[in-house]
Design a protein around this nucleic acid. Structure first.
Lengths: 223, 223
DNA sequence: GAAGAAGCTGACCGATTGGTCAAGAATGAA
DNA sequence: TTCATTCTTGACCAATCGGTCAGCTTCTTC
């Protein structure tokens, strides 16, 4: 298994904008594939199952996606695109409490609304990130480092404790994604098979409170 | 795929204590299987690979373990046994700061020393816990609930903030297991391919500080 | 409506999967 | 030494895997 995300060799026939039929079928396939891959992992997922889930013959899936690997990579690319849209334009002059609260809220909403995408990503990382290694060591690393720099400056200005910013980011990632990736564990232990929006809101408030207070963030957010 | 952990139908020929040969070979197979299953997931792992990793022919693996499923279940059982030995005898009269610190330290050490076991468990949960559902809704749920009761009483006595205890347990679980389950992500972003003991100690101290302060735990631990 | 492009799919392929089995080799208690 | 138990393993099996392909139908465009 290669370790690159840009395997242009295997590709669907068309590149850019395509006909309505193609657009609809590709959407159906990608939706089905996200569910199946997130539930069974890369090797555990079979094209037959994806095809059945999408309501199409297996050959049709391969017609549009080229190969299993290409389908998986395309899914990952889609997930990563929408991964870190938030927190993209923060600056030293922003309010730490507001920014951190919004970050936690945004990640929790992600876990709530796109648990399959989160689990797809988690499965890829769990297996050693065979396809995402370059992304982790490049793009994502830079993203984290630049945010960490802002956190450090906030600490210098006395707006929060001088905690290690990268550990803080990992803490927020893990605590929020937990509710998507370990959904079955959370459901089993709480007994709430249907983790409601109110449940999620309670957890969000808890995390915001503990993280802000735990890092000594001073001012309170507006809301 | 069934959802029970007690499938006594498939079983290795012998039950209890066994000869030296059997003991050594089973150990080799279980060690190899833990590595392979944690790296590739249940369906992604093949008996051929496990056998090669153990240095035995495939037939021999099946002779000792009966089937792939039985081998996997036996591994999971072993992991769960050693899962929550800690925090087992806490009482309302213990010092919250000490107990929570020890809990975090213990879980971080688990991530450090048995990352494959952690990833094996994570993979099982990620895929909906097909084999562990009963365990989650039974044993583990009771364990969590009884610990939560102690946390609540600490809050009543004013020793910590009245935070939701179950959310707190999830927070500690996720934050600590992150360094085993998402090891490849942590390595990619920090650049430390070899996350040293000192790195781990720094993170442990960070988590203890943030969690204790964030939950308003009053007294400080001895150490 | 002609013609080329795009969409569709059943039949088929070699490789790999988990699992069986029979026959022989090593072991250990009497 | 005997002999039953345990251990070992290559050959083999049906099922499933991802992927190819030829030939068909349906669309689009002029």
């Amino acid at each position: 298994m290669g370790s690159q995300l840009d395997d242009r060799a295997l590709k669907a026939p068309l590149e850019a904008e395509a006909g309505a039929i193609r657009q609809r079928n590709e959407r159906d396939i990608l939706d089905a594939a996200e569910r199946v891959f997130s539930r069974h992992g890369y090797r555990g997922a079979s094209l037959k199952l994806i095809a059945e889930e999408a309501g199409l013959p297996k050959s049709n899936v391969l017609y549009y996606m080229g190969s299993k690997k290409a389908l998986y990579v395309r899914l990952l690319e889609g997930v990563m695109e929408r991964w870190n849209m938030m927190l993209d334009d923060i600056s030293v002059d922003d309010d730490p409490a507001e920014v951190l609260s919004a970050f936690i809220r945004s990640k929790m909403e992600m876990s709530r609304r796109h648990p399959e995408a989160s689990r797809l990503f988690a499965g890829e990382i769990l297996q050693g990130a065979p396809f995402l290694q370059d992304y982790l060591r490049g793009e994502l690393r830079d993203w984290v480092e630049s945010r960490a720099e802002v956190f450090r400056k906030w600490a210098e200005r006395g707006l929060m404790d001088p905690v290690d910013p990268i550990s803080l980011i990992f803490l927020i990632w893990s605590a929020t994604q937990h509710y998507a990736d370990f959904q079955s564990q959370v459901a089993g232990i709480t007994g709430h098979d249907d983790f409601t929006d109110e449940d999620m809101q309670r957890v969000t408030d808890f995390l915001i409170q503990v993280v802000l207070k735990g890092c000594g963030v001073v001012s309170a957010p507006r809301g």
